[in-house]
Computed example of a mutant assay.
Amino acid sequence: MSTSLTLPVCSCCNKHIMPNDKCVKFMCPECGAVLVWRCQSCREAARTYTCPTCKFSGP
Rank of each mutant, 00 (worst) to 15 (best):
M1I: 07
M1K: 04
M1V: 06
S2P: 08
S2Q: 06
S4T: 14
S4D: 15
T6H: 13
T6C: 12
L7G: 03
L7Q: 00
L7W: 06
P8C: 00
P8V: 01
P8I: 01
V9I: 15
C10W: 07
C10D: 00
C10M: 05
S11E: 00
S11I: 01
S11V: 06
C12H: 02
C13W: 02
N14G: 04
N14M: 11
K15V: 11
K15I: 07
H16C: 02
H16K: 11
I17S: 03
I17K: 08
I17P: 12
M18P: 06
M18Q: 13
N20G: 08
N20A: 14
D21I: 00
D21R: 04
K22H: 08
K22M: 05
K22F: 08
C23E: 01
V24S: 10
V24F: 09
V24I: 15
F26M: 08
F26R: 03
M27Y: 12
M27T: 05
M27C: 11
C28H: 01
C28N: 02
C28F: 10
C28Q: 02
P29I: 06
P29Y: 04
P29Q: 03
E30A: 09
C31Y: 04
C31D: 11
G32S: 00
G32T: 00
G32M: 03
A33F: 10
A33T: 03
V34Y: 13
V34I: 15
L35C: 15
V36F: 12
R38G: 05
C39H: 01
C39D: 10
Q40S: 14
S41T: 05
C42H: 07
C42R: 04
C42P: 02
C42E: 02
C42N: 04
C42M: 02
E44W: 03
E44D: 14
A45N: 12
A45P: 01
A45M: 10
A46N: 15
A46F: 08
T48M: 11
T48P: 10
Y49L: 03
C51G: 05
P52L: 11
P52H: 01
P52K: 00
T53S: 14
T53G: 07
K55V: 10
F56C: 03
S57T: 15
S57H: 09
S57C: 15
G58S: 01
P59N: 12
